[in-house]
Amino acid sequence: MRYTLLMHYPEVADELDPAIIEEAQRAFASYTETLEAAGVLVSAEVLQPSTNTTTLRLEDGALQVQDGPFADTKDQLGGTLVLDVADLDAAIEWARQAPPLAWGAIEVRPGAVYTVAGAWTPNG
């Protein structure tokens, strides 16, 4: 069963000491190594800050392209992890060990379907 960990946290990277960022990166690298070794990591991605994001909408059929995130909130989606584990408890157990939990919230969302070589495959 695949679960996506959606990591939400405030974007304060600009103000942070590079040493702190480096420390966080080390912690994250060690975390994903553990996930990989346990055979549960499908993919992981840390996103650039929402200052670099672009949002598309259709308004009355016309394309609107805007700079900035979909929702302008204090916490932003900062990254995702996709895990393949037995059940929700296993996913929660991994999520509680994720370093970004110290900075914000982690949403554990079960997947519905995903593609394998372009073909949709049910989760589970």
């Binding site: 069963m1 695949r2 549960v40 499908v42 393949d84 584990v85 037995a86 394998v116 989760n123 589970g124």
Partner: peptide
């Protein structure tokens, strides 16, 4: 959402054996 009879236990491609329920 559950494996069907024709694919016994079909573990999702890409998932590791350790993760199969």
């Amino acid at each position: 959402p559950l494996p069907s009879d024709d694919e016994p236990g079909s573990p999702a491609a890409g998932s590791s054996s350790g993760a199969a329920r």
